[in-house]
């Protein structure tokens, strides 16, 4: 129910459900951030933004606005 990457706590894993294509940079998709993939939140920058995630084998930093657009279901 309404979880996004931005709701994950450090160390938590979620499965990507869907997102609005307009709000997500194409290169994020192309790096493998796609529905069905696991994302793990590794670290949050000191001012709560950006987020450091691991998805599809890539270690990436994305901004919170982007993270809020990606719906997930939490694992565990």
């Amino acid at each position: 129910m309404g979880d996004t990457i931005a709701n994950l706590k450090i160390g938590e894993i979620g499965i990507i459900q869907d997102f609005c294509l307009d709000a997500i940079p194409l290169n994020l998709l192309e790096m493998g951030c796609l529905p069905g993939k696991e994302v793990r939140l590794l670290q949050i920058a000191p001012l709560k933004d950006p987020l450091y995630i691991k998805v599809n084998g890539s270690h990436l930093a994305i901004r919170i606005e982007t993270a809020k657009q990606i719906n997930i279901t939490k694992l565990r």
Binding site: N27, L28, M31, P50, H59, L60, A61, T66
Partner: peptide, 9 residues
Amino acid sequence: QSLFVIEMP
């Protein structure tokens, strides 16, 4: 537009 993505090598 906030399209910031950076890889952490």
